[in-house]
């Protein structure tokens, strides 16, 4: 892929991710965790998985969080730190699982959500609340995370199926 195309694709995905980030924050998250998100913006990570190198995926995940937080006005909140930790670890997990070529989008997406939620709680418990007890919220987060991850996986699958080639070919 030529450099210009890669940068354009990355920027476009980041823009979509930031918008999704903004939109998903309008959907109430039923668990009492600030920075607890549905994770729909991770959709762009799944699309990028098919054709971008790991560095770009990481840039994408952190970039859409920063821009999205700017849009929602929550850049300097504890929730933001949790979100970045979550999305970056999700990016790493999904990239790794994709590299093994043994898993489908659904599995990759759910695993990403599971790791993302775990990192969010670890950040909250180690840096913010300083109590391990909030790990008790993990299963509930995981249930919600799996739902949105499944939706993400399906949408990403459809997107890649319909236009994957045009996205990644010169």
């Amino acid at each position: 892929m030529i450099e210009a195309k890669r940068v354009t694709t990355l920027s476009m995905l980041m823009a979509i991710g930031a918008v999704l980030y903004l939109l998903e924050s309008l959907i109430p998250f039923p668990l009492p965790i600030p920075g607890g998100r549905w994770g729909f913006s991770n959709l762009v990570l799944m699309i990028a998985l098919a054709g971008l190198p790991f560095g770009d995926i990481l840039t994408l995940s952190i970039g859409k969080s920063i821009i999205g937080s700017l849009l929602t006005g929550r850049l300097a909140t504890p929730g933001f730190l949790m979100g970045v930790a979550g999305t970056a670890s999700a990016a790493a997990t999904m990239w790794l699982l994709n590299k093994t070529r043994k898993f489908g989008l659904l599995g990759i997406s759910i695993a990403g959500a599971a790791v993302s939620n775990f990192s969010q709680l670890m950040v909250a418990s180690s840096l913010i609340v300083k109590s391990i007890e909030i790990i008790f919220l993990y299963p509930y987060m995981l249930i919600l995370g799996s739902i949105s991850a499944s939706i993400n996986a399906y949408v990403a699958f459809e997107v890649i199926r319909r236009m994957g080639d045009s996205l990644w070919q010169d």
């Binding site: 790991f54 670890s89 997990t93 790794l96 990192s119 418990s125 840096l127 391990i132």
Partner: peptide, 17 residues
Amino acid sequence: LYGLLFVSAIVLLTIVF
């Protein structure tokens, strides 16, 4: 390499806690 980085990140986070 990335796997190692990822695992050590989680371990580090746990230790910090």
